Computed example of a mutant assay.
Amino acid sequence: MEPQRKSVAGPMAFSSVKSARKSFAVTSTYVKSNATQKEIVTVHTNAPAMEYKSFHNEKNQVYQGEVNLLSVIDTTKDIMCCKYTEDVNDLAAGFTDGTIRLFDCNTGNCTHTLVDDECRAYPGPVTTIRHRPISKAHPITNMLLASYVNGCIKCWKYKYDQCLYTIREKRQTLGLCYHPRYTKFVTYGDDAKLNMYDEEVQTQERAFYSSERKNITDGHTSRIFACAFNPKSHHELISGGWDNAVMCWDDRQPYATRYFFGVHICGEGLDFDKPGKQILTCSWQEKENIQIWDYGSCKLIQNITPDNQHSKLHCGKFVPQTSLIVCGGSDSNLLRLVDVNTKITECSIRNNPGGIYAFDFGTIRRKPKITETYKKNTEIQNTPRVAFVTGKRLQTVDFG
Rank of each mutant, 00 (worst) to 15 (best):
M1I: 07
Q4R: 08
V8R: 05
P11M: 09
S16G: 10
K18S: 09
R21S: 14
A25E: 14
V26D: 13
T36M: 08
T36W: 02
Q37S: 12
Q37W: 09
K38E: 15
H44S: 15
A47T: 13
P48R: 06
S54H: 11
F55V: 08
N68L: 05
C81T: 14
D87F: 10
F95H: 08
G98D: 01
G98L: 03
D104P: 06
H112F: 14
V115A: 10
E118C: 12
C119V: 00
C119D: 13
P123L: 13
P125M: 01
V126K: 00
P133M: 04
I134L: 06
T141M: 06
S147P: 03
C152G: 08
W156H: 04
K157D: 15
K159L: 15
D161F: 02
I167A: 10
L174H: 01
Y178S: 08
D190W: 05
L194S: 07
N195M: 09
Y197K: 07
R206V: 08
Y209E: 07
Y209G: 00
S210T: 06
S211L: 08
R213E: 11
K214W: 05
S222R: 09
N230Q: 13
G241R: 00
N244E: 11
A245G: 07
A245M: 12
A245L: 07
V246P: 00
V246A: 09
D251F: 04
D251P: 00
A256S: 14
F260V: 01
H264I: 01
I265G: 11
E268W: 10
G276D: 09
K277M: 11
T281P: 00
W284Q: 14
Y295S: 13
S297L: 13
I301F: 01
Q302A: 11
T305V: 10
Q309E: 09
H310W: 05
C315G: 02
C315F: 03
Q321A: 09
L324R: 02
C327V: 04
C327I: 04
L337K: 01
D339S: 12
T345S: 14
R350I: 12
N351A: 13
N352H: 14
Y357M: 15
T363G: 06
I370M: 11
T371E: 13
Y374V: 11
K375W: 07
T378K: 09
E379S: 06
E379C: 10
A387C: 06
A387D: 01
F388N: 00
V389R: 01
T396N: 05
V397I: 14
